[in-house]
Structure formats: structure tokens, C-alpha cells
Write a protein that binds this DNA or RNA. Structure first.
Lengths: 195, 195
DNA sequence: GACTCACTATACAGGCTGTAAAGCGAGAGG
DNA sequence: CCTCTCGCTTTACAGCCTGTATAGTGAGTC
């Protein structure tokens, strides 16, 4: 352990290569041709190696997803915006959410699509959505403290969650190509629910 | 051709059976086990018969989708609401849309999920979404004539389309179990964009 | 009564998944 | 320097699903 795992480094690199290859192929949204062999070829590696790193095709999706969450770096979104006014915090949260949706749009579209069809993928995404929901719950409480919404609390939260979800963002079509513009639109919607 | 195709009737029935079986299996959202053989078994028919009716697995999805559109009966939504005031027409259109999303929620979730992953399914759904968009365009024009929206026309239309999309409806979670309640929420959002 | 045509039964090629086993070769460790 | 470890490669295999082909059966048609 002199060079602190030169071997470990290379295996980590091949794992990275596999995950990146999977990311790229998933972004093409061609599930038909998303095979372990295709991923292996793109990563310059054997099929067996892929099975070695990730147990199965689902394991591969799992790896891509957790990797995606890691690079998201949205964890401290709430604390980052604590010092802002409720309105500004709302705008900031929506904006950063949009930027993230936009940055990985193709990949996310595939993953959320698969979640509608595969219970395993769904359960992984569900965890993340639950986290997002909690964050939004805090935000909604802050906003509601400054005004009296016309709708029931449960409806407001559900509405805000839906409006700021990836699928809604993606449904904006061409507008979603400009995250800042989309953020303004979505912020408008969120405020209409909470004011 | 005396009894007007007694044979034709039975073959139409088997086709119905196949499509219904496919609908039911798709609603379980288990793509993994959605095989031609499973559909055939559920329809009480041989695998070969399924291939006879629909050319392939994609052909089966196509058949399910066009069947779904047929039973939707949303074609005259716009003319039905022409005599109403703009605001009432908006509420009615959103409400009927929600009822439809709700009536086939599980199946639609699967189909829209697949569309994110399969270009063929996507292109079929795209046609329907284009139609919906046109309907909403008319509605937005009527609403905008009565007020001056704060947002650009393109943003308003994109927002309304997204907010009334199936995926957003489905993202409402438990609220989507009560289509009328969801309709009120979504109408609120649509109005906030157009007022 | 002969014919049509949808359905059945069976078989086959091709592709993808996942597992197993043997060999290689660079890195780790004494 | 010499040995051992361990990730990667190659090859092989069983199982499942898709899609196609072929021959047979039996109820509906004319």
C-alpha cells in the first residue's frame, strides 16, 4: 500500500468508464439497443467485466442513478437559501432545480421513463423525490407564513411538488432549453399556489 | 355475407381480447414480464395468434394506443365548450382532461414512460399531444382576450400545456385519485398563467 | 359439399441476460 | 527479486424472449 492503491485506482477508472458509457447510451433514449454488451464496447471493456462491477442490468441503472445523485450536489440547497427572504428562497430553489433538470435532461428523461415501467428504478427515484418533497415542505411553510393560500395545505404541497418535478419541467418543451426562463415560469406557478 | 360476418365478429373478439389483455398487463407496470406470451395466455390464445393480429410487440403497443384514443372520446371537447364563457370553458376542459387522465392512469403512466425510452411509442403519443396543444392554444387565446397575462405568449402556452399534461397530473400523487379536486388545483394554475 | 381462413401446435434462428471456469498479467508485499 | 493477489479476458453454456415458417384442424362461408 505504498502508492496508495495504484491498482484500486485503475479499477475505479474502469467503473467510471462503464457508468459513463451507460450514461451516454441511456441519454440516446434507445432502450432497445441499451444492452450490457453495448455498454461494455463503449467502455472498451468485456461484457463479463461489466457484470463484475455491477451485478446486473438493474445494478447498472442503480449505479448510474447514485452517481447522478452524487454529482447533483443539491444537498445543501435548503441551508444555502436559509438566509434569504421566503420569496427569494423560493426563486433560488426553483432556479437551481431547473438548472439541474436541464443539465441532465436526456438522462433524466430516460430514468423517469423507466421508473414508470420498472419497480426497482421507481423505488430508487422515489427516495429522491421524497427528499425533494421534504425540502419543498419547508419552503411551503415559509411562504405560507407570509400569506393565506386559497387552497388546502395538502393541495399546495402536492401542486408545488408536481410543478417543480422533472416531468413537468421536461413537458415545457422548447422552453426547457433555457433553464432560467423556465425557472421564471415555474416560480410564477409556485407563487400562485402559495400566495 | 348473410349474417354479416359471424366469422369476422369472432376474430374481432379475439383482437379485443388481445388488446384488453395487453392493457391489463401494461397497467401492472411490469415491463419485465410484459411478454407476448403473457399477453397470449391472458387472452386465452396462442402466441402465434397475437403475432397474427399485431405484427410485433410495437404493433401491439400501437394497437393499445389507438384503441385508447378511440375510447377517449375527447374529440369534440372544444366545440362542446364553445358556448361557455372563457373561464367556464377553461374549467370544463381541465376537468374533463383530468377525468380522462384518471380513468386510465396506470395504463397511461406506462405508455408515457415507454415513450421516454422508445422512439416509436414517442412518435405516436406526440401526435396526440400536438392535438391537445392546438386545443389549448385556442383556449389560451380566448382567455388572453379577457386579460393581459404577465408572461410571453409562448411561455403561457407551454406552461398551460405542461400543467395539464398527464405526467404533471400523475405527479400530483394522492390528489390525482380525486380528479375533481385535482382539476380545481390545475385550473387554478392555468388561470394564474393567463390572468 | 367444397372452400376459406383464423387459430393451434411445433420447430427454428437470432439476440440478450446472467453464470461459470480457466488463463493472463500488472500491482502489492515480503 | 520472487510470489501472491486480483481484476480483466476469453470461451462456453443455459435460459428466456422475439419473430418467422409450416402443417394441420375445424367452424363459418358460398
Amino acid at each position: 500500500m505504498s502508492t496508495i492503491g495504484r491498482r484500486a485506482t485503475t479499477t475505479a477508472a474502469t467503473r467510471r468508464g462503464i457508468i459513463d458509457a451507460a450514461r451516454e447510451l441511456l441519454a440516446t433514449r434507445d432502450w432497445q439497443h441499451f444492452t450490457i454488451e453495448a455498454v461494455a464496447n463503449r467502455a472498451g471493456v468485456t461484457r463479463v467485466t461489466v457484470y463484475n462491477q455491477v451485478r446486473s442490468k438493474r445494478g447498472l441503472l442503480d449505479a448510474v442513478l447514485t452517481d447522478l445523485v452524487d454529482r447533483a450536489g443539491m444537498d445543501q440547497l435548503l441551508t444555502d437559501t436559509q438566509h434569504l427572504s421566503a420569496g427569494d428562497a423560493c426563486a433560488a430553489i426553483v432556479q437551481r432545480t431547473c438548472v439541474f433538470w436541464h443539465s441532465e435532461r436526456e438522462l433524466l428523461r430516460t430514468l423517469f421513463g423507466l421508473a414508470a415501467v420498472d419497480h426497482d428504478v421507481a423505488s430508487i427515484l422515489k427516495q429522491r423525490e421524497e427528499w425533494r418533497r421534504k425540502q419543498l415542505h419547508s419552503l411551503v411553510r415559509r411562504l405560507a407564513a407570509e400569506s393565506t393560500p386559497a387552497l388546502a395545505d395538502a393541495d399546495v404541497l402536492a401542486g408545488v411538488t408536481a410543478v417543480t418535478s422533472f416531468v413537468t419541467y421536461d413537458a415545457l418543451g422548447a422552453i426547457a432549453d433555457e433553464p432560467d426562463r423556465a425557472a421564471l415560469l415555474l416560480t410564477h406557478l409556485v407563487r400562485s399556489l402559495t400566495d
